[in-house]
Amino acid sequence: MLNVLFGLMLGAALLYGLLRGRADAVTGAVLQGAGDAVKSALDMAGMFALFCGMGEILTRAGAAQWLGKKLRPALRLLLGPAMPGDALEYAAMNLTANLLGLGNAATPMGVEAARRMARGMDEASNALCMFLVINASSVQLLPTTVLSLRAAEGSSNPGAVILPAIAATGISTLVGVLSCKLMEKRA
């Protein structure tokens, strides 16, 4: 899937750029993209280290087990019974961080969960697909970045979007979960 997507996007962009006389801009964007990826990965490396460090403190203190237990029934229902315990714990922490809008904290924990779910397998399991779709559809209750941006642009009511945003993200997650379940049955 990613192979096809990568080829399609890059191929279409280069071809369209040539036809439209924007070949220079497209080439420049490719070069800049590669450079920016390294820059943002360096920024992220610090964030990853920071939040994995904090997560490790919580894990050793036993908080992860506690949190995992709370979210475990719901997650097990979604991800299936064959889930290893440590993966479930990280998935639970990832979900909690996502709900609170702590995107920076959620990613390292989600990555850890995904790694433990995959266990070196080449093909994504049903559980991993479901976990990724839940993450990609966003489960955020407080869109902190959007709120701060609205406030910065001088909105008279920055919080006016909170309820519609929760409803919209709920609908998107629901559609994602249902379609995933449907695809599982088909396979």
Partner: peptide, 27 residues
């Protein structure tokens, strides 16, 4: 999907991206 799949070392993502895009469209 790219970050998580890359870190997990998974190449074939099956229905992940179609379902995630459906969720995005619904949202």
């Amino acid at each position: 999907c790219c970050v998580y799949l890359g870190a997990a070392g998974v190449r074939r993502s099956r229905h992940t991206i179609p379902c995630a895009l459906l969720a995005w469209l619904a949202g």
